[in-house]
Design a protein around this nucleic acid. Structure first.
Lengths: 191, 191
DNA sequence: AGAAATAAGTCAATAAGGCTGACTTACCAC
DNA sequence: GTGGTAAGTCAGCCTTATTGACTTATTTCT
């Protein structure tokens, strides 16, 4: 935390968009264009409904959004380690542990010690877990397909390119590897 | 069955040929196509980083994501009522009140009784609030512009159309009105 | 062999942001 | 003047996240 809200508002004119604004975040922001409100809000609404589908399904199992994320990435990356999962989800070990414990207890996820490094616990979905993960992915896919149909399926690569370009620069490669289905070449975890 | 541009086949496929899955949610899900994992995950990563920018800025004021949403929609829709805000955000009165109270106390938002219906409280951003709202919108716009530049700016309408099509059918019109900047024609609240 | 580093699990406390239910106040409308 | 509506509030609860400190098992380094 830098300086506290020394909120000296030095806005010139909210209407011109020509405002040079100092913020405690540090940077002086000089917008190079007017805010693209349509896209900001469309993204908000789209994402809200996009995660709303699985949310409703998860509730029937007593799970939440956190469980979904864990189940999803384990399902997509069998043999994932705790450490890898943590860095994908960007949460702490303690946060992950709570949901992971539940998923293990309820047998949606299974863990086995690593073959090479036995300290590691390699995570796999059970058939039940796979079924749930797929069901949620299908729900989301349904929505995506509907949306792609609206704009023309051939635009799918445009959408992908846009979304990938929205990711943080220093995270893009890692994310791209994940979502392009490349396995993390460690810990000999193929089944 | 939509023909997808046959993405990849690098992943060890889930060995469930089973496409008919019963879930306590009630519905039997029969996917009409393979899950589009790339898009699901790209959306996850893109949104995570998209909201990460404002999150960091808000933290400097002791605010969170909830404050951002309130500030944003009030800034964009001066004269918004509590009821309207609740239905946009889809949260409860009690949840809203906690953050709204803070925004009012710290003078980022101002409220006046409605002219026609004095039970209503019309919400407006103060100059300080406007400044913060703009700063965050500028941050997000920066990311969006960068992403649009990657795919060609002319694709902006494609992205918009996609995102809008992702919204729930019965919410789409309302959302579209909001993000297209049409004012809710009530309570004589123009500035 | 022994020390240090690493992977993971755990305990405790805290916070943000949601929720429900029940109730009040103020105001509008019939 | 009664009833409905907009908003505010009290109390309690849940989920998801945080930090810090510590343990255990195992690998790696010297």
């Amino acid at each position: 935390m830098t300086t506290l809200p020394a909120q000296d508002s030095k806005i010139e004119n909210p209407k011109t968009g020509d405002s040079r604004i100092d913020h405690p975040g540090g940077e002086t922001l000089v917008p190079e264009s007017k805010p693209i409100y349509e896209l900001i809000e469309a993204l908000f609404f789209a994402y809200r409904d996009f995660v709303g589908d699985p949310d409703r399904m998860l509730a029937a199992y007593g799970f939440g959004r956190a469980h979904h994320r864990v189940l999803h990435f384990v399902s997509r990356n069998p043999g994932l380690t705790i450490a890898e999962l943590l860095s994908i989800l960007r949460i702490t070990k303690q946060s992950l542990n709570r949901v992971l414990k539940e998923l293990l207890e309820k047998r949606f996820i299974d863990s086995r010690p690593g073959l090479i490094d036995r300290r590691q616990r390699l995570l796999f979905v059970t058939p039940v877990g796979q079924s749930l993960a797929e069901a949620m992915a299908n729900l989301q896919t349904k929505r995506i397909i509907h949306a792609l149909a609206e704009i023309g399926e051939d635009r799918k690569e445009t959408i992908m390119a846009f979304l990938i370009a929205m990711i943080d620069d220093d995270e893009r490669d890692r994310a791209r590897q994940l979502l392009m289905g490349e396995r993390h070449g460690k810990s000999g975890a193929e089944d």
